[in-house]
């Protein structure tokens, strides 16, 4: 630089080098001391707020004790499908804990953010807890609802969220379909007719399961809520006994909400080790206990035995067994133009 005298330029260069060296040395010293705090974002579905609030609290303590590293965990909740689309669109989730495997498959395929074999990376198809679908009615069961068949009676108002945005809603839909298939003479046509009649009794479709619970419990709309078992048990706990009752249907579906690290985001943000540990923590005895206390069915036999009495005994079918897996179920029922679009006409 001709405009700056050589001596001054040399001094500037020397000063810059000194500052850079000091900065590097300071950063190195800091790195050798305490590990740098890390932030995790868990993008989850609607009813898991309470579960992960409790789990996060315990995991933060566990991780600090194990590694000395501070972790801050943020949660994002909404309809499972909607949450999955947000991650594909750029929401920087380190982990996803969604309602259905299909939503994580979409993140893997469309977003290319997760390895295709994600479901095999953790035990039990990466579903650390399970749940099912039950019927939640008001105290005394004024409409006399005992099983799925009662939901299509005239005058019965059914609350369930929108399967286009909610994973829970898709489980509800498939559970009803599975019940219809098991009725005498049941086949896809009769099941479709039954589910169509059921949705004629649905006055409101919320975007997520928690929204539907609020609609039923707090806004007082409807006679029966198709609900996650954990959500129904939580509602009864929150509202106090004597206001709501669970009706266990003769058949329901085994819901296996999956979890996964969002590989590309976690790698980019340097959170992969803690993100993986966070999900593995769900499988520990502590994690399973927390899941059970929040009314999710634990996988660990010892914890499952301990909490056995809080879950109604149900005949459970699986998506794989009845529908050939989530991909087929999604294509047949929830894709644009599929069975749900054919049977559900808003406002009619």
């Amino acid at each position: 630089m001709r405009g700056i005298p050589t001596t001054m330029r040399n001094r500037l260069l020397a000063s810059g080098a000194l500052i850079a060296t000091l900065a590097a040395a300071t950063a190195d010293a800091a790195a050798q001391g305490a590990p740098k705090p890390v932030n995790l974002l868990n993008v989850s579905y609607d009813p898991t707020r309470e579960l992960y609030e409790e789990l996060n609290h315990e995991f933060i303590r566990y991780w600090k004790g194990k590694t000395g590293q501070d972790v801050r965990i943020r949660q994002s909740h909404g309809g499972s499908g909607k949450q999955g689309r947000s991650v594909i669109d750029g929401l920087q989730a380190d982990v996803v804990t969604l309602a259905v495997a299909y939503d994580i498959d979409q993140i893997a395929e469309k977003g290319r953010l997760i390895a295709a074999d994600w479901q095999g990376r953790l035990a039990d198809n990466s579903s650390p807890y399970t749940s099912t679908i039950v019927l939640l009615v008001r105290k005394g069961n004024p409409k006399g609802i005992k099983d799925w068949g009662d939901l299509v009676k005239p005058g019965v108002s059914v609350i369930t969220p929108n399967p286009k945005t909610s994973g829970g809603a898709r489980w509800n839909y498939l559970a009803a379909w599975a019940w219809a298939l098991r009725q005498p003479g049941g086949n896809d046509a009769t099941a479709k007719a039954f589910v169509a009649r059921l949705y004629k009794n649905v006055p409101v479709l919320d975007a997520g399961a928690r929204g539907s619970t609020t609609t039923f419990v707090e806004r007082g709309i409807g006679d029966v809520l198709l609900a996650w078992e954990n959500e129904a048990l939580l509602a009864i706990k929150e509202m106090g006994p004597g206001k709501l009752e669970i009706v266990a249907p003769s058949v329901s579906i085994l819901a296996e909400p999956p979890v996964s690290v969002v590989d590309r985001v976690a790698r980019k943000r340097g959170t992969q080790p803690v993100a993986e540990a966070y999900l593995r923590y769900l499988y520990t005895e502590v994690g399973q206990e927390i899941a059970a206390k929040n009314f999710y069915r634990p996988r660990l036999a010892s914890v499952a035995a301990k909490y056995e009495s809080q879950f109604p005994k149900l005949t459970l079918v699986t998506v794989d067994g009845v529908f050939g897996g989530w991909r087929k179920a999604q294509a047949a029922h929830f894709a644009d133009g599929a069975s749900f679009d054919q049977i559900y006409q808003p406002g009619r």
Partner: peptide
């Protein structure tokens, strides 16, 4: 009463 509640909820959902 149910109809009013449903209409209110539908309106809120439409706004959302």
């Amino acid at each position: 009463d149910q109809q009013i509640r449903v209409l209110e909820r539908l309106r809120a959902l439409a706004v959302d």
